[in-house]
Amino acid sequence: MRVLVALLAVLALVVVGWAGAGLPWVTGIVVPGVAFAVFVVGFVVRVIRWGRSPVPFNITSVAGQQASLPWIDRSPLDSPKNGFEAALRVAADVLLFRPLFRNTRTKRGHDRHPVYVPERLLWAAALVFHYALLVVILRHLRFFLEPPPPLVGAIDWWDGFFQLTTPVLYMTDVLLVAALVFLLGRRLVDRGLRYLSLPADYFPLFLLLGVALSGLYMRHLGKVDLIAVKELALGLATFQPRVPAGLDAAVFVHLVLVSVLVAYIPWSKLMHMGGIFLSPTRTLANDSRRRRHVNPWNPQVAVHTYAEWEDEFRDKLVAAGYPLDTAPAAAPAATSAPSSESVHA
């Protein structure tokens, strides 16, 4: 049911795009423009809101020995001691998906005891998906820039290295769809995950699949008029919008799906692209033993420290022969020392 809701929503968007071909100015110019504005403004607003929320405690999450005595081995990445090491950890999270690499699966060992074994398929699929998407986005720059930068041409050449089919099939297109199918299948096949998954988990996957498949359709089956596509894209990038004749309906389907995806980011789990940089559990250094962190909304409490207490009752303490932290002036201290021992004895 939750799968169907998400699938139907994406199919409805495909129909909207298809029908939107009749209103090219709306679907081709207004929708992408509004979507981009919603994306940028929504993203900035959410990040600022996160930035303004208080971080009362040093809640860094650790998975290794923290810095202590020099002869104790420590893990700089899993328990960063300063901002630099914390930044390294964030970089490893963002670029290599280290936390996913630690993912485990529970298996029943002999004697029916649970055994935890590494489960790295999710890590691999996530990594492949994200990097493939990055390459796909970079390749799309050829539509938005005139002249296209040489870097895009180089990416294009490597991506089509195997020269399969005409036009050349891109490796990243295949990997992107394969990874998405795995990530979707994972949620559908695993009973526990299916129970946990919400429409908000399926929707981005279906949406991304829709984007990828409509793109593959345009390149390999529909053969859309690319000159017209570039004219439209250039018009958007240079703020001289125009709708060329000869745009296929598939282009509008792709555009609507991408616009919805982009506008959906600030409102959804896809916001993890900004959130990963603002998670106090990952970005803070584990230095609570070296630096005092004060909760900013702690009420002002009248504090009476032991040192102050000792000063207040010094005469009585000395008279009773109690041992003191701060030794009083030399003469009384000499007399109090032996007597205190006698008290304890």
Binding site: F36, F144, E146, E231, A237, T238, Q240, R242
Partner: peptide
């Protein structure tokens, strides 16, 4: 994210076919 926009503005790109 706004790279295509400012790049086009900076390089003075025109829509051409």
């Amino acid at each position: 994210v706004a790279f295509p926009f400012w790049w086009s503005l900076a390089s003075g790109a025109e829509v051409r076919v």
